[in-house]
Structures are given as C-alpha cells and as structure tokens.
C-alpha cells in the first residue's frame, strides 16, 4: 500500500517557537486516521502545512509519493483533491444551504468557467443527495447564517464531500455538537473512509473511540506515539502529556 500523504522531518517555527519539529507521518489511501494531542502540539499548523497555507522551514510533504505540496498554494492543493474543514465551522453565511453545496461541487474553478457556468441535472441530483446525507434537506433554501452550530458543522462536511476530495482533513468536527450528533458524525466519517482518506484532528476521546481507527499522538510538534487508541492510551508518556491532564 503506498502512502497517499507522506510527511518527513517537517519543521516550522514561529518567532523561534518550533510549532512543528521533525514531524513524520504517513497515511495510506483510504485510511481513517485520528490525530490527537494537547493544545499547542502543532495539529492545526500541520494542517496548514499540508493545505499550502503555511510553508514549512524544512522537510518533505508528498502527495501520492510524487507531488511536493510545500511549493503549492491553497487553491492548487485543494484542486489536487485535498479538502479541509476548519475547527470553527466556516460556511458562506449569506448564501443558502444549497448554494453552499453548489459552490463546493467539483467543477472548473476558473473565473470564466464560473461566469458561464450552468448546473446540469446530474449536478442538481448530487446536491440533493448530499443534502440528504447531511440531513439538511428541509433547510435547503435557508440562509446558512440561520443554522445551528452543529448544522453548520454538517454543512461544512457536506461542502467537503461535494468537492469529491481524495483526502479530507477534518479539524475538530465534533466541537459544539450534542452526544448524539457526535456519534452520528463519527459514523459519517467512518462511512467516508475507505472510498476516501480521512484525517481527523480531535480532542474528544469518546469521539476518537467511536472512530475506531489508528491514532497518532502529537506532542511539541512531533509524533509521540502511534497505534490503536488502546495501545497509545496505555503508554506512560502519552498519559503524562495528554490524557492525564
């Protein structure tokens, strides 16, 4: 199995503080991976580096072992097939729910392509199917600003799916959700994995347990431990830096 995403010895410091310090990570195609770690462990910076928002000071970030992601900007990385969900749900507030999905649908992203774009029947069917999957069909014409926090989280996941990415980077999807919603989100992400690769950054241990997947523990910008949740949570050093708090 070849790695879809491969990070080797990545470093990045901000004003002398090493946010990422020799981080190496390999995620296989179709894998579901949870990344945990205390605040300041470098989780968000890692996502910023993968998605082209932040340039690393050193190290390699490879896509399918071939494409160097460190030289690309956000739009190019996104168009390779890497989708990202933010920690704080970020949707287009003044657009309707369905327009949010429509904008995300996989299609040429150029100005003139968008200017003369007409949506096809197949694309409208995709929008309907996605709205169904994220359970927002009854709100499709509602302004996104009027959704609840949890519904915005789901809408953003829906937008991510609409992009048809090969890799989904999901930052704390369960934040602000009820227990039932959290479990549903875990099920949703599990159903996406396999077909697509999913990396989830999360704090909520129940959620990570529900994901039932390989876990990477970050600490001070590098990998502290990796394995099943039971395996890593049994390790002394992990308990000390993270779980014990």
């Amino acid at each position: 199995m070849t790695a879809q995403l491969y990070l080797d010895g990545v470093t990045r410091s901000f004003d002398g503080f090493k946010a990422i310090n020799g981080l190496s990570l390999s995620v296989d195609k179709g894998e579901l991976r949870a990344v945990i770690g205390p605040n300041g462990a470098g989780k968000t910076t890692m996502m910023d580096i993968i998605t082209g928002k932040t340039r690393p000071d050193g190290g390699e970030v490879l896509w399918n072992m071939a494409t160097d992601l460190t030289r690309m900007d956000e739009a190019s990385v996104a168009n390779l097939g890497i989708g990202r969900k933010f920690q704080k749900p970020t949707v287009f507030e003044t657009h309707s729910v369905e327009d949010n999905i429509r904008l995300a649908l996989k299609a040429p992203r150029g100005v003139f392509a968008s200017l003369f774009y007409r949506s096809s029947v197949a694309e409208e069917a995709k929008v309907t199917a996605l709205l169904d999957r994220i359970r927002l069909t009854h709100l499709r014409t509602e302004q996104a600003a009027n959704l609840s926090h949890g519904q915005k989280q789901w809408l953003e996941i829906g937008m991510l799916l609409a992009q048809e990415p090969q890799l989904l980077l999901v930052d704390e999807p369960a934040a602000g959700m009820t227990d039932a919603e959290t479990m549903e989100t875990a099920e949703l992400l599990k159903s996406i994995a396999g077909e697509r690769t999913v990396i989830v950054v999360e704090h909520d241990m129940d959620f990570v347990r529900a994901l039932d997947c390989r876990v990477t523990v970050l600490h001070q910008g590098s990998v502290l431990a990796e394995g099943s949740l039971d395996h890593v949570s049994a390790r002394e050093d992990v308990i000390e830096v993270y779980l014990g708090r």
Partner: peptide, 8 residues
C-alpha cells in the same frame, strides 16, 4: 479562506 481551500 474557505473559498481558497475549496480550490477557488
């Protein structure tokens, strides 16, 4: 930034 990460 949402728009950027969507590939626009």
């Amino acid at each position: 930034s949402r728009t950027r990460f969507m590939g626009y």
